[in-house]
Simulated scan of single mutants.
Amino acid sequence: MSNLLKPEILLAVKDLPLAAKTAVDGFMAGMHAAKVKGAGLEFSQYRSYQPGDDLRWLDWKMYARSDRYYIRESEMETSIEISFLLDASNSMRHTENGIMKMDYARYLIASLGYLSHLQGDATGLAVLHQGALFAMAARREAQHMARFYYQLEKIQPGGVFTAPMHYRDLFSGPHKRKLIVFVTDYYEQEGEITTLLETLVALGHEVMVLHLLGRRELNGDYSGYDAVEDLETGRQVELSRHTNPEEYTKRLEQYMEQIRIRLLQKGMYYRRLILQEPMDAALRDLLNQRNKMKR
């Protein structure tokens, strides 16, 4: 595992695209190049270059012969569509060791998106924020990725989890099977997150859930605090001196195991990610899941 994948190092890079490239470069350094090279392409035909086309597909030999720019159009047989779904409700403001859940999620999705684009996949973004939904359709162009990073940079967590009446853009459009990567702290009141995920699976999509937790949150370590605040409801919870961290951890583990089993039973992939730990596992999972869809 590369030190470049440690969250405190990545978050110190204020340029989000550069941080994403840094993370993926560090990840690739630990893998055989053949496993992460660009999508396998089968040549189809040439067409004239248009502004916004990915420069990776320019054919320089054709340019040398004709003094004109041509793009090699190809059958993207090994590419898929990947949409990143981000829970940006107010509970994502939770911070430990100077790392906010939202910032970890921002850099994580930027890195996963960079890897997706590197593989030749169409990459999209949807953000559940302030009770509403922002969505960008998946595309492959380099210009699209600039907009992808821009939207990630400007979003700030707020409000409660988005209500079903705003999910229309998630369910509309061509009914094409895609990989949906959902990054969340899984803070739900009445099963609303699980219901959304089960609906996406019912529509035929592959769903990958990345559950963010802080180490102190996981261990029930609230030493030095008399109370904690529910970031989405504002409700204050008093902490007794007799609060048992071991009992808290046991109940939390049971709750998360129930979530994991339910998602697995519906065919979803689930991984828990700790804020203080590197992002390499999620990058590896993305490659594994996309390769699974290609088979």
Rank of each mutant, 00 (worst) to 15 (best):
V181F: 02
M102Q: 10
V209H: 04
W60F: 15
T195Q: 06
D103H: 00
E257F: 09
L125E: 06
S240W: 01
A88L: 14
K176F: 03
G267W: 09
S48D: 08
E277C: 02
H166M: 07
Q45E: 08
R272K: 13
M28A: 13
E206G: 07
R139S: 03
I80F: 00
S44G: 00
E192W: 01
A19V: 12
H211S: 14
I80L: 04
R72C: 11
G173D: 10
R68V: 06
N90I: 03
L112A: 08
L196Y: 06
Q45V: 01
L170W: 03
G191M: 09
E75W: 12
I99E: 14
L203P: 03
F148G: 03
D54L: 08
V237G: 01
L200I: 06
Y167F: 15
F27A: 09
Q119N: 11
D280E: 15
L231T: 08
I71R: 06
M293C: 06
S91A: 11
R216C: 02
Q45I: 00
R295C: 04
D67M: 14
G214R: 04
E153A: 11
N244W: 08
A20E: 07
E81V: 15
A34T: 14
G98A: 09
G120P: 08
I155C: 15
Q50S: 13
V237P: 00
G214M: 07
M92V: 02
V127P: 06
H205Q: 05
R262F: 04
D54T: 11
S223H: 05
E257H: 14
T123N: 13
E8Q: 13
L112M: 12
Y149Q: 01
L112K: 07
R235Y: 05
E238F: 07
K154S: 02
K266I: 02
S89L: 02
A142M: 12
A12N: 06
A227V: 02
L85A: 00
S223G: 04
G224S: 00
P7V: 03
M136A: 00
G40N: 03
D121Q: 14
L118M: 09
R295P: 01
R106T: 10
E247C: 03
L213D: 05
Y149N: 01
P174T: 14
L231K: 07
G220R: 11
D103S: 02
L4K: 12
T199S: 14
G30E: 14
L252K: 15
T249N: 00
K35P: 01
Q276Y: 04
L203Q: 15
V127Y: 11
A142H: 13
A34C: 08
V209I: 14
L55T: 08
I71S: 04
D15E: 13
R271V: 09
R106H: 10
K6N: 14
S66W: 06
L286G: 03
Q45C: 02
T162L: 13
T194P: 04
V228Y: 02
G214C: 06
L16N: 08
G26C: 12
A137V: 09
G267V: 09
E198D: 04
V209S: 02
Y248I: 12
M102D: 07
M92N: 01
D169S: 04
E75F: 13
K292M: 12
A146C: 07
K35H: 10
N288S: 13
I9G: 00
L41C: 09
Q151H: 15
T233M: 07
Y107A: 05
P278C: 00
L4R: 13
G158W: 09
L200Q: 05
G158D: 13
L108S: 00
Q119R: 15
G120D: 06
V209M: 05
M28K: 07
M100D: 07
